[in-house]
């Protein structure tokens, strides 16, 4: 995935079944953000892989004061990339070759 300066990782082991999964997000490179970033630490949250949209969660982070509005896209993309990877891994596990 593209290096957005915002890192998103699983915050629990993925059992491949739960739709809602714990994620952890933190800023690795504040210079990649357009707005001034307050170093708040890592943000832990749960994300519903089926029903939720990464950009909506990014917007909620902006409204909660973690990021400025100008960075909503970069945060949303970072979450989207991680979610895509989780889904890809699940699909690969669910449909073994053979």
């Amino acid at each position: 995935a593209e290096d957005t300066g915002v890192r998103v990782e699983l915050n629990e082991e993925d059992d491949g079944k739960k739709t809602s999964i714990a994620l952890k997000l933190w800023v690795e490179d504040p210079k990649k953000l357009k707005g001034k970033y307050k170093d708040t630490g890592a943000i832990e949250f749960t994300f519903d892989l089926v029903h939720e949209v990464p950009e909506v969660v990014a917007q909620e982070m902006v409204e909660s004061g973690f990021f400025l509005d100008c960075d909503v896209k970069i945060v949303g993309k970072s979450i989207r990339d991680r979610v895509a990877l989780i889904k890809w891994r699940r699909e690969r596990t669910a449909s073994p070759n053979g």
Binding site: R7, W26, E28, T40, A42, I43, E44, F45, E60, S64
Partner: peptide
């Protein structure tokens, strides 16, 4: 531990915790 909790008006819970040093990008 220094954690804080922020609840968004939509009901989502964000928990702020320290970034593990080992996971910070190495320069």
């Amino acid at each position: 531990s220094p954690t804080a909790q922020v609840v968004h008006s939509a009901g989502r819970r964000f928990i702020v915790s320290p970034v593990p040093e080992a996971r910070l990008k190495e320069q």
